[in-house]
Design a binder for these strands. Sequence first.
DNA 1: GTCTATAGCTGGATAGAC
DNA 2: GTCTATCCAGCTATAGAC
Lengths: 216, 216
Amino acid sequence: MRFMIATKQKLLDGAIAAIREHGVAGVSARTIAATAGVNQALVFYHYGSVHELLAAACRAATQTRVDAYRERFAAVTSLRELLDLGRALHEEERELGNVKVLAQLLAGAQVDEKLVAPTASALALWTAEIESVLSRILAGSPIAEIAQVRGLAHAVAASFVGLELYEGADPAGARNAFSALEQLAVLLEVAEDLGPVARRALRSRLAKARRPRVSP
Amino acid sequence: MRFMIATKQKLLDGAIAAIREHGVAGVSARTIAATAGVNQALVFYHYGSVHELLAAACRAATQTRVDAYRERFAAVTSLRELLDLGRALHEEERELGNVKVLAQLLAGAQVDEKLVAPTASALALWTAEIESVLSRILAGSPIAEIAQVRGLAHAVAASFVGLELYEGADPAGARNAFSALEQLAVLLEVAEDLGPVARRALRSRLAKARRPRVSP
DNA sequence: GTCTATAGCTGGATAGAC
DNA sequence: GTCTATCCAGCTATAGAC
């Protein structure tokens, strides 16, 4: 994929731009081609179908975004820093419209099973990144004893997408939700700094709750 | 709305059933009418347009579901009970397909601004219920000092929707996320039972973080 | 590789008979 | 209130000229 003729790349970019502009329900070979500034028939010549183009665009766009954040993810050393990065990422990607694209694809995947696989692998790129940071900074933390790191990574990704969609319907509500979650994060910081006595207390509570098995 | 002729009601039910079955992108006057077992032209006679029918159906269906849970919400007296009810609600509504309908409408609202208002008011019905329970059971709790109750209610609703959409693309990931969040809830329980010393420590940390203003 | 043209289908919406 | 019939727009996908 290192070398790609101009038209194929234009179609990839056009597909993402079209989703951003019209939503997944509003994309078609015609709208994509118009956005890309190329002929409509080329969608089928290069990608066979609209779905396959969307799948390719989803994959390429997500990879690009994840790569763009890799260094910043790697630089994170605390929960607070991760939360700050999360906030920044949300705002930057919102500006660029990329979180919207992911949310749209996720919504589209509910309807169209041909979108399930590409969407799932796009989400996986993000959650893998989050999981690797979490497992690094939560090593030895009581939080890691309480919840599966992989599950947390999935929860973070799912909540992000949910908040993004929520914002489209109720912007003020979404802002309040974001603020509340950030404030709640203070609790996690406190938990991270627990002394041995408090840790024992937490552990005894944990014993009462069943520890779920994580799926692969 | 207490008395409604049979056909109008059939169309309302048909609209919800059609969304459940085909997703927002797959609903049309024809599919709704077919699901409802009535003539396609009646969509326009009774509701003027497909969008207006969807708005009415969204409103009616959500009200019905919220009403069905009102007593159970009212019976909740602790955070743990609320979480259990949340889990039960998610599973029951998932079974009935209603969370899917809400998620679909939310996705549709990103695309079609005519869906924004009905979707927002449907979400508001849920968040109002959650907020009233939260403010009751969190009265005097340090959690209420940390985060705005209304913001928390919005966050819960948004995360629920996000998880529902996530489940369509990656079922195993969604299950892990749910488990992780439940385990994390142990932290909230601990916070609820904090003694005076620990509360003071928490409060001093809180002072460092700015308390955001809540929107109306 | 890129274009035009078009087949074949589905959808929103309306007119007018009953 | 309900039905049939129909118009027109937009869609996927392909055939075939260049």
